[in-house]
Design a binder for these strands. Structure first.
Length: 205
DNA sequence: TTAAGGATTGACT
DNA sequence: GTCAATCCTTAAT
């Protein structure tokens, strides 16, 4: 893997194919406040071809999910629960929608800035443990929807070592999309920054 | 136009 | 363990 870098072509595969390979990768976001670098430890894959009932793109293109249908390697940021922003890496070629939800990460650089963004009572392992927490620590806002993660102020670097990965049903997804049939949550086995699994109350068996 | 629900989190019992 | 916060998106009137 030495010398391997992410390029646009890499993200033209589907999210399910790419998600396990993203574990251990680092995402850097540089802002006026400084850089923060996250080592990704937990992700979920969502497809958009109408076969994934848990995906925002299940019912086709809308104003909200339009970015998912655009160029791979870009950021799909969306607002949810009236107060939270979550971030995805857009996958699949233009016109085809799939994405990787970033659910958990370890802050490996800019930790003081991440602490400032998350608040004084937050423990270091919780700084980016959870999708909405991760966006706050990274300084990703709704206005960053559509940004290219492969160019400034973002950068994305592959993992440097092979990691032990686990997989299972996606967290917080209602209906059939939260079932074992869609075991598209991937995490670094045993990593403390992986968020706790919470089954949706209306998740299908 | 209205209503239901959400790819969550943090506070509280 | 339970539950409220809070507003955008979607589907149904």
């Amino acid at each position: 893997m030495t010398g391997f870098v992410f390029d646009r072509t890499f993200f033209q595969a589907t999210a399910v194919e790419i998600a396990p390979a993203i574990l251990g990768a680092t995402l850097t976001h540089e802002t006026d406040e400084g850089p923060v670098t996250l080592r990704i430890t937990e992700v979920e894959a969502y497809l958009g071809d109408g076969t994934d009932p848990g995906s925002h793109a299940f019912r086709g293109k809308t104003a909200r999910n339009a970015v998912m249908f655009g160029e791979p390697g870009h950021l799909y940021a969306y607002f949810t629960y009236g107060m939270h922003v979550c971030g995805n890496i857009v996958c699949s070629p233009v016109g085809s929608a799939s994405g990787i939800l970033l659910r958990g990460a370890e802050v490996v650089d800019g930790i003081e800035l991440a602490r400032a963004r998350r608040g004084p009572t937050v423990r270091d392992r919780d700084l980016a443990r959870g999708p909405a927490r991760m966006t706050i620590a990274a300084g990703i806002r709704l206005a960053d929807n559509g940004a290219d993660l492969l160019s400034s102020p973002f950068s994305l670097e592959p993992a440097t070592t092979q990691l032990a990965a686990s997989s299972g049903p996606r967290t917080g997804v209602s209906g059939a999309g939260g079932s074992i049939e869609y075991s598209w949550r991937f995490w670094v086995t045993g990593d403390p920054t992986v968020s706790p699994y919470k089954r949706h109350p209306r998740a299908h068996a």
